[in-house]
């Protein structure tokens, strides 16, 4: 199995089979499933939110942070992630911060955008294009986690569903020959 395929195992919100996520839930001791109101330090939270902002930025439409993805990430990491998933996420955030300080002598959130993008691109290359990295240390797993959180949070949000996409709760008919250019957007579900 390619490293990339191994990493794809990090996808759990919408990816993977239900049976797998159920099995995982059973394996986690009850004590580790208690809801935490806060799982990230202020610094870690800032990095996570900035990553979401870089993954789906404001463009001609609002981006992830405007759609409330920050809250979504906080909720999932604190209340929905199991202990091992949370630990993996935090380890990756810390790795990203450590590399930021080592290479640019500043915290990730204080870097110029181009440097932030550069670091994330290196993690994306490891996670999605089988590249090697000397500093990864779990950062690639975290990249896939934060990307999945951002994508899911954004496209299931009200803003993502109604502004970025077209939400039609009662279509009233089915047209299997409908032309994309008539709507020009994806249907939200």
């Amino acid at each position: 199995m390619q490293r990339r395929e191994l990493l794809q195992g990090a996808l759990i919100l919408l990816g993977g089979t239900l049976a797998e996520s159920c099995t995982r839930a059973v394996e986690v001791p009850i004590a580790d499933r208690t809801i935490k109101t806060r799982a990230l330090t202020t610094g870690q939270q800032g990095i996570a939110h900035r990553c979401a902002d870089l993954i789906i930025p404001d463009t001609d439409t609002p981006g992830a942070l405007a759609a409330g993805v920050g809250d979504f990430i906080d909720y999932v990491v604190a209340s929905w992630y199991q202990a091992d998933e949370r630990a993996s996420f935090i380890r990756g955030l810390d790795a990203l911060e450590a590399e930021s300080v080592r290479r640019f002598s500043a915290s990730f959130t204080k870097l110029e955008a181009s440097h932030q993008v550069q670091l994330l691109e290196e993690l994306s290359a490891v996670a999605e294009r089988d590249a090697e990295s000397s500093w990864d240390q779990g950062g690639a797993e975290m990249f896939l986690q934060i990307k999945e959180l951002t994508v899911t949070g954004f496209y299931t949000s009200e803003l993502g569903s109604t502004v970025e996409r077209e939400y039609v709760p009662m279509p009233g008919r089915y047209d299997g020959f409908f032309k994309f250019n008539v709507v020009g957007k994806l249907w939200a579900r």
């Binding site: 279509p171 009233g172 089915y174 047209d175 299997g176 020959f177 032309k179 994309f180 250019n181 249907w187």
Partner: peptide
């Protein structure tokens, strides 16, 4: 068929 994008959830 890339110009086609069905309307409604059948």
């Amino acid at each position: 068929f890339e110009e086609y994008y069905p309307y409604g959830h059948r």
